[in-house]
Design a protein around this nucleic acid. Structure first.
Lengths: 212, 212
DNA sequence: GTGCTATGTCATCAACTGATGACTTTCACG
DNA sequence: CGTGAAAGTCATCAGTTGATGACATAGCAC
């Protein structure tokens, strides 16, 4: 047995592995999608980045649209759901921020972050898919933990805050956000999001917020 | 940086008007850019939407990239600057929100809103341009009005909040944000952004203050 | 080994895209 | 008028893109 196959649980390093090829295509597609959007992502570039032949896109996914849809769908919804369900409400904002930042850093490894996905929405079809993913995998769960009026709006505003922050920091790369250390961002995000999470029926402030 | 003294009073309604054609192309380009991104915007579609011949894109702008760059550049920076400079700080968040919402509604009429633009960032070149526009036309001005630490970060976080909100509401169309009436949005945006605008030594409550 | 099938490669098509240059039409000016 | 340049049209090129089907190779069963 001269093969130094390190993968214990998996196949003995086949030179042809449909599952691995599929995964590689999906990972590459996620990166390209976040970087270039739907229209800017080509099957040839994805295949090249994945190190496989372009025709395999069509063998495994049938079309560019199906590939990108599955890539946008991702598989980390469970992870995100765990985060939303487990984290203390007060810490949820910065936990989500960390999650999104880490996802962006490891782009394509498993899935794309909420914000990374949104950044690539230049296609009506994917827009629907991403909306459903955000609503079912994030908003619905968070809404359950929120009390008081406008719970759904507040949940989506938290998503908007994280999304916008990641977008400006990682994609537009505005200088201050791009340079800011995580702790600073965490603190401010928590402060901004706090009103969304805290108590219910307290008189919704007319826009004279600063109160003793 | 031309069009000095546009005395549109006595135009004899020319059937051929280079200035009008240019404007029509720019307006159409803005719409397409916000809708489909850079890669998804074609010169033929822009020209068709503007009701002119595709070749005119190259007569008036030289290339697709230059057309879209000029479209992204816009000319309403002055308007936005006025808003940022004049509005009371406490009202600035919802004023900005209104501004962005109105801009989106009248997409292409004059320019694209900050958020509408960001939504189309799938091109590295335009990303630079949009970053510069945000930083010089928004962040720089707002930073001047902010006191205390992290002024630039706080300014960009406000931009991020508005951007993310518009993006989720107008592009991804998450249900609650899409349905929410303006006043509700205004109220929450103001509450969220308040900590960014208020004074420095404000005792950020209920959180571990990381200062030592 | 033989052979079968999953996996991967190759060439290619039709449509689309950015871009260019030659041509045609309008229209202000004399 | 007529003339010349601005404004607009047309045909077309070369490269790219999504997509398809014929072909080649690996790897397993026997």
């Amino acid at each position: 047995m001269d093969v130094a196959g390190a993968d214990a649980a998996e196949r003995p390093l086949r030179r042809r592995d449909a599952v691995a090829t599929r995964r590689a295509l999906l990972a590459a597609a996620r990166r390209q999608l976040a970087e270039n959007g739907f229209a800017g992502t080509t099957t040839r570039d994805v295949a090249a980045a994945a190190g496989v032949n372009q025709a395999l896109v069509y063998r495994y996914f049938g079309s560019k649209e199906k590939l990108l849809a599955e890539a946008a769908g991702g598989d980390s919804v469970d992870t995100l759901q765990g985060v939303i369900s487990r984290a203390p409400l007060a810490e949820l904002p910065h936990v989500l921020l960390d999650y999104a930042l880490d996802m962006h850093a490891a782009a394509g490894e498993r899935t794309s972050s909420l914000a990374t996905l949104v950044s690539g929405v230049d296609d009506a079809g994917l827009s629907v898919l991403i909306r459903e993913r955000i609503e079912s995998g994030f908003v619905a769960l968070l809404t359950q933990r929120l009390e008081g009026p406008d719970a759904v709006v507040r949940a989506e505003l938290l998503a908007a805050l994280v999304t916008g922050t990641i977008l400006l920091r990682e994609k537009v790369k505005t200088q201050a956000l791009a340079k800011a250390d995580r702790q600073t961002l965490r603190t401010w995000i928590d402060v901004m999001a706090a009103p969304l999470l805290t108590a219910p029926a307290d008189p919704t402030p007319t826009h004279r917020a600063p109160d003793g």
